[in-house]
Lab assay of single mutants.
Amino acid sequence: HAATELTPEQAAALKPYDRIVITGRFNAIGDAVSAVSRRADEEGAASFYVVDTSEFGNSGNWRVVADVYKA
């Protein structure tokens, strides 16, 4: 099962156990969220919340930071 994305309210009520950072070329924010979901799932997380997204220069590469939560 894939890790689910939390709302800001849900994330605020929970304590993350880790923070992950992924970088890559994403065509849309949805693609980045899917990549975070896969990584969170690999780490055994039940859910995640994207904290920050930023573009690296003009290369089209993105850096996505997310907190991950157990259950």
Rank of each mutant, 00 (worst) to 15 (best):
R19E: 00
G24Y: 03
T4I: 14
D41P: 02
V64H: 00
L6D: 01
D31I: 10
A2F: 14
V68Y: 07
E42L: 12
V65E: 06
L14R: 11
E43P: 01
Q10P: 02
A71Y: 12
A66L: 06
E43T: 12
W62S: 02
G57Q: 07
T23Q: 09
S59P: 11
L14K: 09
V33Y: 10
K15V: 14
S54I: 15
E42K: 10
K70C: 12
I20A: 00
L6N: 03
A12G: 08
A12L: 10
V33Q: 05
A71V: 11
A3I: 11
A32D: 02
Y49F: 14
N58I: 12
K70P: 06
T4M: 13
A71R: 09
R63H: 07
T53G: 06
R19G: 00
A66H: 01
L6A: 03
V65M: 05
Y69W: 01
W62Y: 10
V51P: 00
A40H: 01
P8T: 13
S54K: 13
F56T: 09
V65H: 02
A46Q: 11
E43C: 14
N58K: 10
N58T: 13
H1A: 09
V65K: 02
G60R: 05
A2L: 11
T23N: 06
V64F: 03
L14F: 08
I22N: 00
I29N: 04
F48N: 00
F56R: 05
S54A: 12
Y69G: 00
A13F: 12
D41M: 15
I22K: 00
I22D: 00
V65N: 01
R19V: 04
E42R: 10
L14Y: 07
V64C: 05
E42G: 06
G60L: 06
I20W: 08
V36S: 02
I20L: 07
A45V: 03
E55P: 11
V50C: 05
V51Y: 04
A3Q: 03
I22W: 00
A32N: 01
E9K: 09
N27M: 12
F48T: 00
S59H: 09
N27G: 11
T7Q: 05
A66Q: 01
G60Y: 04
T7H: 05
A11R: 05
K70S: 08
V50H: 01
K70D: 07
R25M: 11
N27P: 09
R63I: 14
N61S: 10
G60V: 05
K15W: 08
V68C: 05
E42Q: 12
F56P: 07
T4D: 06
N27F: 09
S47P: 02
T23H: 10
G24E: 02
E43S: 11
L14G: 06
F48P: 02
R38Y: 07
F48C: 04
E9W: 09
A35K: 04
R63G: 02
L14S: 09
V51F: 04
A13N: 12
E43Y: 15
A71C: 12
T4W: 10
R38E: 06
P8V: 10
V50I: 15
D67M: 11
P16Q: 03
A35C: 09
I20M: 05
L14A: 07
A45F: 14
E5R: 14
V21H: 05
R63Q: 09
F48H: 01
L6F: 04
Q10R: 07
I29W: 14
E9G: 08
